[in-house]
Nucleic acid binder design. Structure first.
Lengths: 252, 252
DNA sequence: AGGAGCTTGTGAACGTGAGAACAAAATCGG
DNA sequence: CCGATTTTGTTCTCACGTTCACAAGCTCCT
């Protein structure tokens, strides 16, 4: 090889204020486990204890925690309260995040009623829907407001997180409006791929995809035998004689 | 080294009826994209078209599809209907999977009403709850039945997939009952880590974890400045002076 | 004070996944 | 019938994530 690629030469640059994404995704699980231990009156826990409570293996847990700093004590373990606070701070749930929910159908209803929104650290500031028949309806101690008020609400309440629980159809438009209004994190429950500009984070929760993944594994459990493998690709191009129908509807 | 470990010596054993997990998780997305294209009357699509519709890059899509077989035509692309059928067959949604939903609170209600359960291939055969006040209530064209009927229903309707939408408390017990009754795939919405024996697949959908992941990234967007890093670990062991409260409640 | 016994934090090996790049194969125009 | 063009399928390389294994460090007991 002649020339070194454009890699930075210095040290491995570990922890350059960068926690691996896989670790970030597990921190909330650890936080929940610590809360449960704390509620049980347990003051100290080893990585083994914590790992069991969180459903991971202890080496992974230790490595994950090591990205945050050295919060344990060798020979002893971790102080539950202290570690809990450190993780909460790292995630950012020591402060309050304002959240809007757009689309008050069945799912939107369910989320609006979700006590405390599952976790402290998040505060629903508005339930929005474009349907005039829904506007004004009371859910818990909140009232459904018109989607047109979005921009005003986002600015006033400094909303940075939006939850989309509309059907697939209007989801992209709702998403664009949210982004234009200044929302920079979106949790999408609608069964579509949303596109957002750089700088906006988006996460997807999709029931039917989860079910299909389960079905895939289920399929090769029961049988264990080979499936009716590849029914031979038709001659060349005269495809689609009459394949069995599958799926259908935009919300497939 | 003296003795070779118990690794099979043969060829790389590629595609020994094993599709990478990351690919399996994307197949449902491709299926949905193909359905959308099909509904738009598009008969043929290139990997580029498909990748755009699915929100991935085209090299990844081609590699994913290659695990299923050679279903494309070089210089042309993929036949939408044909590929859709092949993916559906691979996932297993060409057959019908019987599903029970346990826990008919807000979320259970929402899922029960979810038209067609999002995708063909899944059929809700029962809504179960242990609360006598809920039993007998009609939701859509179904009636809530007593959780005690679980074993009978699972056997009669050959249920292999269970959805848990109870609160965190009873979730593990419900899970154990499902497994004992013969359910081998579980989709868990309760905010707890469930333990299941080998051979049972479990997937988790967790709103508060998703929100916390968004919060983490949001936190280092707005500031971009360093956080009030590590407030110095207290002397040695006299921890927990009075850290700010965070979280709380078992369902944290 | 010193050694035994735990438990953390981390270096190194391994496995999986992503993306670039290209050869193989099909169509189409002349 | 042949070469240009298009697009797939696949190989190769790199980055990321997981797991093992062990040295460093803390506590407790003698």
């Amino acid at each position: 090889m002649t020339r070194a690629s454009s890699r930075r030469p210095g040290p491995p640059t570990r922890t350059e204020r960068g926690i691996p994404e896989a670790t970030v995704a597990r921190l909330p699980v650890y936080l929940r486990a610590l809360t449960a231990l704390s509620d049980s009156g347990i003051a100290t826990a080893s990585s083994e204890d914590l790992a069991t409570a969180a459903g991971v293996n202890s080496a992974k847990l230790r490595k994950d925690l090591s990205y945050l700093g050295s919060y344990g004590t060798r020979g002893v373990g971790y102080d539950v309260e202290y570690l809990r606070y450190q993780i909460a701070r790292e995630i950012g749930v020591t402060q309050d995040w304002a959240v809007v929910i757009v689309g008050i159908g069945n799912l939107g209803h369910a989320l609006a009623n979700y006590s405390g929104f599952g976790t402290r650290g998040f505060r629903i500031v508005a339930l929005l829907d474009a349907d005039p028949k829904l506007v004004g309806e009371r859910i818990g101690d909140m009232e459904v407001r018109d989607f047109a008020e979005l921009e005003h609400i986002v600015e006033t309440d400094r909303v940075s997180i939006g939850v989309i629980t509309t059907p697939a159809g209007p989801a992209q438009e709702v998403c664009d409006r949210l982004v234009a209004a200044g929302v920079t994190s979106i949790l999408n429950f609608a069964p579509v791929v949303l596109s957002v500009p750089d700088g906006v984070d988006i996460r997807k929760v999709d029931l039917s995809i989860e079910l299909q993944i389960l079905a895939y594994h289920e399929q090769r459990k029961s049988g264990e035998v080979a499936l009716p493998q590849v029914p031979e690709l038709p001659a060349t191009n005269a495809l689609t004689p009459d394949l069995p129908a599958v799926g259908g509807g935009v919300i497939a």
